[in-house]
């Protein structure tokens, strides 16, 4: 190995190490703190490995109501994601496989939705939610979550659906299948990769959603995780290890999903990036 190459390689490793430290250290800090007792945190806040490894923080976090935030987040996320998949897949079928005059305009209308700043819809949605008597109900989040997930989902589905070879559809048509049958028997089963991409992408975003939950939910027992964490912080800001345990638990589902389904997430991001 020439010296020049050696210098280059070591520079590469130094750079990788610096970035890894920057990206990874806060996680290390969060995780190791979450296993410390309050005492140990104050005497020894920076040790990477706690002297006495304790799970008391995790237990106390559940005592303080984290489980209800978790449950609410799971309920609203599952509902919203399931609805998005169905609604977006249905809408994408004509957009990707049928010819009609407004096709392009409607597709563009959906895609432009990705650019809409959420704030431009907040006040009317707040007013509407009040008028419908849905204020401070978990269900109030469903409409906004589904609506803001539609653009990217329609985009992903139409891309995948337009790639299905026409022969598959022709065979079903010869057998006399109508559009509904073609959709449910041919198109939908053939876009499984798109379904998982849409599910995972929206799962992450809805799981972490903050502002709609902030303005539409008020009582603690209706709160989702992000709002609950914020409330936690207000009440227990002294108990740093406890808060860190809550943060670890709240982040775990998404991080596990990423480790299991890396490629799907990346695909979703790529789809989203075409717009932003």
């Amino acid at each position: 190995m020439s010296t020049l190459k050696l210098v280059k390689t070591s520079m590469l490793y130094v750079m990788a190490a610096i970035i890894a430290l920057f990206a990874g250290y806060p996680f290390l800090y969060m995780i190791s703190t979450s296993f410390k007792s309050m005492n140990e945190f104050f005497t020894n806040p920076f040790s990477a490995l706690p002297d006495s490894f304790t799970l008391e923080q995790y237990a106390s976090v559940f005592d303080m109501g984290l489980s209800s935030y978790f449950l609410n987040s799971i309920v609203i996320t599952v509902l919203a994601v399931a609805l998005v998949v169905i609604i977006a897949a249905l809408a994408s079928y004509p957009l990707s496989r049928l010819k009609f005059r407004l096709n392009k305009s409607i597709f563009t209308l959906f895609i432009i939705g990705m650019m809409v700043p959420i704030h431009a819809t907040l006040i009317p949605i707040f007013v509407m939610t009040n008028d419908l008597g849905l204020y401070d109900k978990l269900l109030a989040l469903l409409g906004p979550y589904v609506a803001f997930a539609l653009p990217i989902s329609v985009f992903i589905f139409t891309q995948f659906m337009s790639e299905i070879p026409a022969e598959l559809e022709e065979a079903a048509k010869v057998d006399g299948a109508g559009h509904w049958k073609i959709f449910s028997k041919v198109i939908f089963p053939n876009v499984k990769p798109a379904i998982s991409t849409v599910v995972i992408y929206n799962f992450i975003h809805i799981w972490n959603e903050f502002i709609f939950a902030l303005i539409l939910i008020q009582s603690p027992e209706k709160m989702t995780l992000p709002i609950g964490l914020q409330k936690f912080y207000g009440e227990f800001s002294v108990n740093v290890p406890g808060l860190m345990a809550a943060l670890v638990l709240a982040s775990l589902p998404v991080i596990l999903t990423f480790v299991i389904a890396q490629e799907k997430i990346v695909k979703g991001l790529m789809g989203g990036s075409v717009k932003g």
Partner: peptide, 13 residues
């Protein structure tokens, strides 16, 4: 096919 999507999109965006 598109009714639901258009409805939600119109109502909430």
């Amino acid at each position: 096919f598109m009714f639901m999507a258009l409805f939600v999109y119109t109502l909430f965006i």
